[in-house]
C-alpha cells in the first residue's frame, strides 16, 4: 500500500535515468560511425563529424589533470598529514567546501577575468584547463584527504618507529595504501571535466574551428559546447539534429564509461584489500 508508492517512486527515478539514456541512445546510435568520430564538421555543422570536438575535450581533460592532480593531491596530503587539527585546517576545509559549492559559471567568469584577460592567455587551451582544474580541485582535495584519513594511525606510528622519516612514511606506506581511493576520485573528476560547459564558454571553446590545435594557446572545440551550439544556435537546427544526437551520445558514453570505470576500480581494489 503506502510502501508500494515508495517502491514505485524509487523505480520511476531509475526509469527516468533510462528514459534519458534510452532517448539519446535510440536517436544517436544511427549517427555513430568511424566516419562521424574521425572527420571534420562540414556544411555549417549540418554534416560531417565531431573529430575536432573530441580532440578538444581530450586536450582540456589532459590540461586540467596536469594542473589539478598534483596540486589537489599535495593539498590533500598537507591537510591530513601536516596541518594538524588547528584553525588553519578548519579554515582550509571550509574554504574547500565552499569552493566546491560555487556554480561553474562563476568559475567561467573568474577564469575569463584572470587567465584570459589579466594574464593575457586569450581564449586558449591553457586558460580553459586552468579554469576546469580549479573547478575539480576541491573534489580531488577532499577525496585525497578522506582516503588518507581512512588509514589507521598504527601504520604511521609503526613506520616512524622503524626509523623512517615522515616523508618516507607518506611515500612508502600511506600513499600506496590510499592509492585506490585517490585514483577513484581522480577518475570521477575526469568525468566531471569532460562534461562541463559553462566554465569553457568564455575561456577556450570555439564555435566552429575545423582544425586541430597546434599549441596550448590555441582555441579548440569541445564536445559539451559543440552539443550546446548545434542544439540551440547552428545555421540549420533541424538539419543538424542527428549530429546533435550523435554528439550527445558520444559525450554521455565518455562520461558514463569513466564513471563505471571508477566504480569498477573501487570494487576491484576493495576486494583486494579485504583478502590481504
Amino acid at each position: 500500500m503506502a510502501f508500494f508508492v515508495f517502491r514505485l517512486l524509487a523505480w520511476s527515478v531509475v526509469g527516468l535515468l533510462f528514459w534519458i539514456l534510452g532517448f539519446i541512445l535510440y536517436n544517436g546510435i544511427g549517427v555513430i560511425s568511424w566516419e562521424f568520430l574521425s572527420s571534420m564538421p562540414e556544411d555549417g555543422m549540418t554534416s560531417g563529424g565531431i573529430f575536432p570536438a573530441i580532440v578538444g575535450t581530450l586536450c582540456l581533460v589532459a590540461g586540467s589533470m596536469a594542473f589539478a592532480f598534483p596540486f589537489g593531491i599535495m593539498s590533500g596530503i598537507y591537510m591530513n598529514e601536516y596541518a594538524g587539527n588547528g584553525w588553519i585546517v578548519k579554515f582550509l576545509r571550509i574554504m574547500t567546501n565552499n569552493l566546491s559549492g560555487i556554480p561553474s559559471i562563476v568559475f567561467g567568469l573568474f577564469g575569463m577575468a584572470l587567465f584570459v584577460n589579466t594574464l593575457g592567455f586569450g581564449d586558449s587551451i591553457i586558460a580553459g584547463s586552468f579554469t576546469l582544474g580549479l573547478l575539480i580541485l576541491p573534489l580531488i582535495i577532499r577525496t585525497t584527504e578522506e582516503s588518507l584519513r581512512a588509514i589507521p594511525d598504527a601504520y604511521r606510528i609503526g613506520s616512524l618507529a622503524l626509523g623512517a622519516s615522515k616523508i618516507q612514511t607518506i611515500r612508502k606506506i600511506i600513499l600506496p595504501m590510499a592509492f585506490p581511493n585517490i585514483i577513484t576520485g581522480l577518475i570521477l573528476s575526469i568525468g566531471r571535466v569532460s562534461g562541463e560547459t559553462a566554465p569553457i564558454l568564455f575561456t577556450v571553446a570555439a564555435y566552429f574551428l575545423p582544425k586541430l590545435p597546434h599549441s596550448v594557446f590555441d582555441q579548440v572545440m569541445a564536445l559539451p559546447y559543440h552539443l550546446y551550439v548545434i542544439a540551440t544556435s547552428g545555421t540549420d537546427i533541424e538539419a543538424s539534429r542527428p549530429i546533435a544526437y550523435g554528439t550527445a551520445l558520444v559525450l554521455i558514453a565518455i562520461v558514463l564509461l569513466i564513471n563505471l570505470l571508477a566504480a569498477a576500480l573501487r570494487k576491484y581494489f576493495g576486494r583486494k584489500v579485504k583478502t590481504n
Binding site: 535515468l17 534519458i20 560547459t197 552539443l227 550546446y228 546533435a244 554521455i252 564513471n259
Partner: peptide, 12 residues
Amino acid sequence: LLAGIPSVVYGF
C-alpha cells in the same frame, strides 16, 4: 549515475 550526466545533455 544521474548526477554524472553532463548538464548540457540534460539541457538537450
